[in-house]
Design a protein around this nucleic acid. Structure first.
Lengths: 249, 249
DNA sequence: CAGTGGTCTAGACCACACG
DNA sequence: GTGTGGTCTAGACCACTGA
């Protein structure tokens, strides 16, 4: 329908789109809506599929947010939650320190049996009863993280947690004072959002997420909490100091 | 063309595809090729676009690898490079310890000027001359990481690096003995692969990558190396121990 | 050259939010 | 109901690989 290039330039449609979209997004005030996808696609001279693929990049960076049935909105650059990884700290505590408004949404309790995989990871019998706590964390009314904690029922029961749970299992255990907590062994991964998690975080399936898989140990070296944390890029900044060389330490 | 559901089940095409693809991949020996995409799409009763979207998941986990003009191959689960984040260690050193075969590919030197952004990050004048070292890391002949180091020219010159560079700027500086290195401040991110990087790593643009952005400091607290490291998920396992509470420390 | 994956299109229908 | 984004289709052409 249109020629692929105008002169000697060999700019790909994808790259051109990225540029045009970037300009368009920058020109729209935060909170305002973009044109509907079919209109925008026509306007940019590409198919809707191509447009959507290009938009993924910007959504991954938190610059726009799509809401089914409503529209696509430009979001201003919000505050960033910065944390050193050496210290284990809940998002709530972190947010409080920088006076950021953080809420919990979509809390859910599940009673599950360990099964093979969890039994192996958590060092419990496959028939062990576990409590799974899932919830979304909202910063400035935007979903920014999805957290899942799995604990043995004899460490923490749902009835106990019903009252006074504000989003952080870690903070709750610290307040309760028992068992004494020692440290967390955290594995860091990058992952694509599964459909269920994408839904919770109001992003698209396949979008990029930073993930922590952590084992929290008591002072007696018992595992008290096995957790999965998914973070939308752009809202968090995790840092770690790495020593050079292990010989002179 | 076909009914969307057979009974009361409301399984989505996407989820069904995931399952069928998983079974198919599992049933094919490592190293073997999958059917061509148009054939496979017909066989599974979906369009090629849908098939490709479903395949992204498996490619992101390193279970398959696509090569344009050749085909899509099942890759067996290779060895995993495990590392504690507290200690800064090159991939080469890490691999040597577990006797894994690691090579460097696509080495490239660029002489650049700092410019605004880099000048700010690296605390040098915008006109400073910098050496940018880019290369791909191969483990068992598969691209697994893409590394970019940026250093002031007066710390490391290309001519000096031409000889005896095996892939790690860190190892080279340690061998040289000057300047004395102290530690690295590393920021951890998840990111989607840009077209250039996707090409280097033989993955698709938009695929998930774990990224480290690190500032390496000398004992005199001078910045000697600003680096970006991109890791394909599945080949690396980065861990960190996090202390509970900063009060009783 | 033939065959592969990479990209793009035009159109359709569905699920959801909101009045 | 109306309009939005979410998903899927069938087909086309391009870029790359290897015989």
């Amino acid at each position: 329908m249109v020629s692929k290039d105008s002169s000697k330039g060999f700019e790909q449609p994808y790259q051109r789109l990225q540029g045009e979209l970037a300009r368009m997004i920058a020109s729209i005030p935060a909170g305002e809506r973009l044109p509907a996808e079919p209109d925008l696609a026509r306007q940019l001279g590409v198919s809707r599929a191509t447009l959507r693929e290009a938009m993924r990049t910007f959504e991954g960076q938190g610059m726009i947010r799509r809401r089914q049935g409503v529209g696509t909105f430009v979001v201003g650059q919000g505050p960033v939650l910065q944390s050193g990884l050496e210290v284990l700290e809940s998002i709530e505590t972190l947010a409080k320190r920088i006076k950021l408004n953080v809420q919990m949404g979509a809390l859910r309790f599940d009673h599950i049996q360990a099964g093979e995989n969890l039994a192996m990871e958590m060092d419990v019998p496959p028939t062990a009863d576990l409590l799974q706590v899932s919830r979304v964390i909202l910063a400035e009314d935007r979903p920014v993280a999805y957290l899942v904690d799995i604990l043995p029922e004899n460490i923490l029961s749902e009835s106990e947690l019903q009252e006074g749970f504000t989003g952080s299992v870690l903070d709750y255990l610290i307040r309760r004072g028992s068992p004494k907590l020692s440290n967390s062994l955290t594995e860091i991964r990058a992952t694509a959002a599964k459909p269920e998690i994408a839904r919770m975080l109001q992003i698209q399936r396949g979008d990029v997420l930073l993930m922590f898989q952590a084992k929290l140990f008591s002072a007696e070296a018992r595992l008290v909490d096995f957790s999965f944390s998914y973070f939308i890029p752009g809202y968090f900044r995790f840092q770690v100091v790495r020593r050079v060389g292990d010989i002179h330490s």
